[in-house]
């Protein structure tokens, strides 16, 4: 069977790296935002800003790695059914 020149699955693989970066950055951003809001409006000290920023960094790495593991698991699963699965996946997308 001739290979499809534009494969959306491979474009999706490229997206994983991008997505990992975005997950890390957005977690750090949200952690910093919570800390800043606590500092500004709740009158808590600068310690809380640093604490929440650190929490954001940890959370970002944790969520990012969890995301990568989940994606790896997904691709492993599709690879296992993949050899004969070119037909079955084609069928499932058209049916």
């Amino acid at each position: 069977m001739k290979k499809n020149p534009l494969n959306f699955k491979e474009l999706g693989m490229l997206n994983i790296v991008f997505q990992f970066g975005i997950v890390v950055v957005s977690n750090v951003f949200v952690g910093g935002l919570i800390g800043y809001l606590l500092m500004k409006y709740a009158g808590m000290g600068k310690f809380w800003l640093i604490l929440f920023l650190m929490l954001g960094i940890f959370s970002g790495l944790y969520q990012g790695i969890r995301y990568l593991l989940k994606e790896a698991e997904k691709y492993e699963k599709t690879d296992k059914n993949g050899d004969k699965g070119n037909h079955s996946s084609g069928n499932s997308s058209t049916s």
Binding site: V23, S26, V30, I34, S59
Partner: peptide, 11 residues
Amino acid sequence: MNLIGELAKPV
């Protein structure tokens, strides 16, 4: 961390 992770999703 889970809470921050959830809040970071819409961002």
